[in-house]
Nucleic acid binder design. Structure first.
Lengths: 291, 291
DNA sequence: ATCGTCTATAACCTGAGGTTATGGGGAGTT
DNA sequence: AACTCCCCATAACCTCAGGTTATAGACGAT
């Protein structure tokens, strides 16, 4: 039984006549008549009795109708689904991100996107650099947004823009509130360092090594905003990305640029074989425009 | 999205390649390729990315697949259903009948039919003459089997055969166990009559009127086998159809033919506009052969 | 009789979906 | 680098399901 058979059968059964079914389906009456004959021939039994020029459903038709009706409704759902998918009104965007993006950048972009596309579901979670590969390969997220990530084979990169490392310090410590600080100056202050490895930590370490500076790493943290909050409590100074710094501002700390800027990139990673869905691409375009 | 699109999409998605899908569907590879392109064109978005000559499902495809899979399974069920209907292996036979047929005739026929067609469900109930019209018009049963029913317009009749009225009497009352009794003899015995109206009652009343006989109707019952059971307990004699009589036989009663036989017909009634289903017709043919 | 309604049939057209043949790109092997 | 295998896309072609209009027959109602 072809889909057209089911459609036509359903239409005739519900409207009660071939003529009405033809109107409902917006085709000619002979067309419906012929499709019905063909369906009956193929099935091997009559669906309707022709009595006095009218159609009367057979018991076989009654039995089949139950099934046909279910299919008929599902056909409608798939076409609705297809329509919604095409119009970006259905779908899921699942992104993983470094915690730093979770304060302002992503929330702002998500809120903006959802104003336009209310049926899109977001799936957001934070992840650390070392988990990226595993995470993507297991399809836990479609895309991961990170600071200067390593390249992996089989994983594509999207460039969103760049950011700078900044120094966050307690105002008590530097009451003159400098807007620029050289990395050499930091030697004299206790430093809350943002973990041993990771792209941003490497950036700082490289700079220190190159300039033959020894930083006083008194506390090591893995999550950047914790470093800033430690500074708030006077535990020392820290070097973090500007986004984390800005999002955690308060009265007793201040932000200074580095004399010699340390720039990092912001990139999205996703599986090379699995291209991004249209909705996700649209969202990432919006996100990119924030830079 | 046409059914073929769904089938092809489903096959590609599950097998992972156009080539395998073509094998699965028993068509050529270019055919599948073309149907997929057509589906994507009509949908307005890609279902698979062609990366390095291979197909990778898009996120849109993932979303659609959930729906497609449900439809796909449904399509299979309707074709199974159609097959079973054609082979009389699916369906329902709903018959209403006078209680008299419920002892041997119908149970025997049903049991025999069900040996051959185990998936046919029977729906059997008894009904009284006056309810027939209402019953059929409300589609409560497909066919009603009755004694000498009236004709109604819009209702077709099927003739199964004939039966005779017989006299059931307690052996104590007539110890010589006559095998024939005239209706005149019955005047002397208390009679359990089988209701005022109804075809069989009319038959008896007409005979009595014609022969100017007054029967002693001491008990009136509506259900024939109750009359016979009253006879068993010595309450009198009764005139009932031969089928009820035979089915209720016991040691202390006997059956006698009437001197002048009173014959009635056994007919099936069904809606003229709604022809009988093949399964029901088959069953009724089997039933007819019992006479 | 006659009109309106419904179904079936005839004659015809179009395009979805099938075929075979062929070519190109990627991956693995020699 | 060349060879080979696998997979997909394209071209040229065919067929029939499913569409069209025109028409005729059957039935109910006026």
């Amino acid at each position: 039984m072809r889909l057209r058979h089911i459609e036509v059968f359903h239409a005739i059964y519900t409207t009660g006549s071939i003529t009405n079914a033809a109107k409902l389906l917006h085709v000619s009456q002979p067309s419906v008549s012929k499709v019905l004959s063909h369906a009956e021939m193929q099935l091997g039994f009559k669906l309707f009795d022709r009595v006095k020029g009218r159609l009367i459903a057979t018991h076989e038709a009654d039995l089949l109708f139950k099934e046909a009706d279910r299919i008929y409704r599902q056909i409608n759902t798939i076409n609705d689904a297809a329509y919604n998918i095409k119009n970006n009104d259905l779908g899921q965007i699942s992104i993983a991100l470094a915690p730093a993006f979770g304060f302002d950048l992503i929330p702002q972009a998500v809120a903006e996107y959802r104003k336009k596309h209310q049926n899109i579901i977001f799936n957001i979670q934070t992840l650390h650099n070392e988990e990226v590969l595993k995470h993507l390969l297991r399809h836990k997220s479609e895309v991961a947004i990170l600071f200067s990530p390593d390249s992996y084979s089989g994983i594509s990169e999207i460039n969103f823009g760049t950011g700078n490392l900044v120094v966050v310090y307690p105002i008590k410590l530097l009451p003159h509130k400098p807007s620029k600080i050289s990395i050499e100056e930091l030697e004299q202050y206790p430093l809350i360092s943002i973990s041993d490895s990771g792209p941003l930590a490497n950036l700082i370490n490289q700079e220190a090594t190159q300039k033959a500076i020894t930083l006083r790493n008194v506390i090591k943290v893995k999550t950047y905003f914790i470093a800033v909050n430690l500074v708030k409590h006077g535990a020392g100074v820290c070097i973090v990305d500007e986004f984390t710094a800005k999002s955690q501002q308060s009265d007793n700390i201040a932000i200074a640029q580095l004399e010699d800027p340390l720039e990092f990139s912001i990139k999205g990673l996703h599986l090379e074989n699995k291209s991004l869905s249209t909705v996700t691409r649209n969202f990432l375009d919006l996100f990119k425009n924030k830079f």
